[in-house]
Amino acid sequence: MITETKNTLPKEICDFIDVCLTREHPESYLIAVLHKLQQQFGYLTREHMDEVAQRLHVPASFVSGVATFYHFFRLQPRGKFSISVCLGTACFVKGADKILDAFRAELGVDLAETTKDGLFSLDCTRCLGVCGLAPVVTINDKVYSQVTPQQVPDLINRAKADLETTETKV
């Protein structure tokens, strides 16, 4: 039986936690610690969260509660294709929520989640400043304008096709 948590946290984060421990209410720095972790790794792993719990003396269930409560925290790495639906006012008025729902249904994931095959992650963004093209979806660095829910399956297939061509080239 394993008795110790694995030490996988980078040194800067451990040092930061040590500083927090010298302050009043160290547990109140939990979000700050998780924030730093996500900045560095892109998402929070279970091992990292458990080690934060140990070092900061905060129950693991509580860390898990905070990490799952805030939209900001990701618990899975981003997919090869990062899909982002703009929910700015203009896009929203033009039905961005329906596009988001179409992606949800098509991929079987919710916001901030990644498909099991690791290909697609779904996110939303605030106004991208191209309201003339509303509603807007970005997939990695490609921008798609005036998207309709009906086009969603096609967008996904196109991304998959892109992947195949790049892979055959390699």
Binding site: M1, T3, A53, Q54, H57, V58, A60
Partner: peptide, 10 residues
């Protein structure tokens, strides 16, 4: 008795 994982936080 054997120490158990996950370690509890006191």
């Amino acid at each position: 008795y054997t120490p158990r994982s996950p370690r509890g936080i006191k």
